[in-house]
Simulated scan of single mutants.
Amino acid sequence: MKHSPALVVLTDFFAVSNRTLSYAAGLAVPLHAHLVLLHVRRDGLLAPAEYSHHTTSTERQTARQLQHLAAGQDVPTEVDISEDFLPEAVEDVVRRHHPLLLVLGRPGSATMPAEIVTNTAMDLLRHAPFPLLVVPTVSWDVRPPRRLLLAVDGQPFKLPETHQLLSRLLRANQGTLDVVHVATEAAPDDAPDVLAGIYPRGMLQEVEAHRVHHMQQPTVVGGVLQQAADMEADMLVVVARRHSLLGGLFHRSVTAQLIQESPVPVLVLPAEE
């Protein structure tokens, strides 16, 4: 396992036991990667009350359950249990495993509102700016992503090494990549300008003209989700800029809204300053 790339799955004992973990395992196969199940004891999201009593007996039971979960996967899987709080635990696991990405399930149930997972995702991105895949656990089919949609805002951005992750996903699953730019006000067709901030850095040169979509919609989020539905995208890719991660009002962040509302997995790539 040490010679293969890792996908770190943040376990929560509920969503991770089915769709999220199945999806991560499905990604790991074509990427020739292994899984790391990260369990954080001191976190209300990933360690609910019934699993968080810190006694020797319950800690051993938790470890056994995680090992059983790992053993049942179709790809090599290891368990990492942390006593730190979530941001510190993620920073540590990134340093030690150098994963391709982090994977977080979004239950979206009455007992675990989507807003909590969204805020957790944004908090992770602020403390450990690393590719993060947020996987909804209801209302979609678990399948390898083959139709990816990248949402851009028309401004230049730089992705430190993470463009290789996009390339790996596309090659591994023989996928296609579309790009969407949503304007909330009328604007002329400016496809060259929209992609100008990407091409000089050697990213996405293979995007064909017919796969670049310009839309005018009342909201950016509505436009992106409409395009994703129209092309039946099975993964949405968004670039998170520093200002969107540091903003205190999450409802004003397009990144946060897409994480919360997208019916398909969202891959968030933090932009480099």
Rank of each mutant, 00 (worst) to 15 (best):
A6D: 13
V9F: 02
F14L: 06
S17F: 02
N18H: 10
L21T: 15
Y23P: 03
A24D: 11
L31P: 12
A33S: 14
A33L: 09
H34A: 10
V36T: 10
L37W: 00
H39Y: 13
R42I: 06
D43V: 03
L46V: 07
S52H: 13
T56D: 15
S57R: 15
T58M: 14
R60W: 01
R60Q: 12
T62A: 09
R64F: 15
R64P: 02
A70M: 08
D84Q: 13
D84P: 03
R95A: 12
R96T: 13
H97P: 00
L100E: 12
V103L: 07
L104D: 02
R106S: 04
M112E: 14
V117H: 02
T118N: 03
A121D: 07
M122A: 01
H127T: 04
F130A: 04
W140C: 04
W140H: 12
P144L: 12
R147K: 10
R147M: 14
A151C: 10
V152Y: 03
P160A: 10
H163Q: 12
L169N: 04
L170V: 15
R171F: 14
A172N: 07
N173W: 11
N173H: 15
T176K: 00
D178N: 15
A183T: 13
T184Q: 05
A186M: 08
P192G: 07
I198Y: 00
Y199C: 01
P200S: 11
M203Y: 00
E208A: 11
H210M: 05
H213W: 12
H213V: 14
P218A: 15
V220D: 01
G223I: 05
L225V: 08
A228I: 02
A229E: 13
A233C: 07
D234N: 12
V237Y: 03
G248K: 14
F250N: 07
F250L: 11
R252V: 01
A256W: 00
Q257W: 01
L258I: 03
S262I: 02
V266T: 14
A271G: 09
